[in-house]
Every structure is written in structure tokens, then in C-alpha cells.
Amino acid sequence: MKELINLTINDQAYEVAVAPNQTLVDVLRYQLELTGTKKGCELGDCGSCTVIMDGKPVNSCLVLAMQAVGKDIKTIEGLETEQGLHPVQKAFVEKQGVQCGFCTSGMILSAKSLLDKNGDPTEHEIRKALSGNLCRCTGYQKIIESVQAASKGVSK
């Protein structure tokens, strides 16, 4: 029933046995213990399961684990480097883009994808890029301020 597949997550190779009906988010969370990727709705509506797949943020609850074979997957756990937090993470700490923290991983990954493409986005571009990530705590204001702060950090 299960099949061994190879996944590349945060530049690391994983061999993992999965069934066809397992989604990427479930494999990340329950088999690989990468629990920074959250599950808020499981239907692609909330964005808390966002991961970056081949450079693009996607809902990992809509991706079958088997479809992720051969893709370059980045989760929130893969953002820190030996130099410390990623500039977007740093900005979310400094500007308090964080409240309950449940949407945070997804927000940060969507923001990082945006800034990788566009180092100096307008406020509207930020809003558009994060519009698949729901947050119920912040009213988004400090999230936008965090991304703006990070973009300044990145373009410096």
C-alpha cells in the first residue's frame, strides 16, 4: 500500500513511506516532525499550511505527498541559517507581525517568496501576495509593516 518516496525538504533528502492519499502537510507534520507547517482548514482556504515548492508558495494540504517528489520544498524550519533568523523572520519579531502564531509560518513563507521576486514591493503588492494567508488576530497591519521592514532589510 505504502510506497517509499524521496522528498527534498530544506535542502535535505528524506526517504519516507507514504500512501497515495497522504497529503504533503500530513507527511511533513506527522512523519517528518516538521510541525512548523500548520493545518487550519485542510481545504486550501486559510494558508497556514503554506510551503514553498520550487520557489512558489502553495497550500501543502492540497498537494499529494507523491506529487512533491522531485520538488524543492522549503518549510518554515528551513529559513534560519547559521547567521540566525531570516530577515523576514527578524522583522516579524521586531514589528510584532505575530500574535497567536498559527498563521505566521505561512505568512512568512508567502512574504519570503514575494521578496525573493520583488525586493521592494508596494503596500498593495504585499497585500496581494499575502492574500491567500488568513489571519484572525492581527488585522494584518503589523504583518504588512513587518514585510515592509524586511524589504528594506533585504534591499539594503
Binding site: T35, L85, I108
Partner: peptide, 23 residues
């Protein structure tokens, strides 16, 4: 003041443990 939240580093790195993260 505008002190940074104590839990923010855990939350921005995915380390903060919510109940479904436990086993």
C-alpha cells in the same frame, strides 16, 4: 515600551508547539 514579544522567536521559526504538534 515596545518590547518584542517573548514568544515571537519561537513562532517565526515554527518551533512554538501547539497541541496538534504534540505526540
Amino acid at each position: 515600551s515596545r518590547a518584542a514579544r517573548l514568544d515571537a522567536p519561537d513562532k517565526v521559526t515554527g518551533r512554538a508547539v501547539f497541541v496538534d504538534d504534540m505526540s
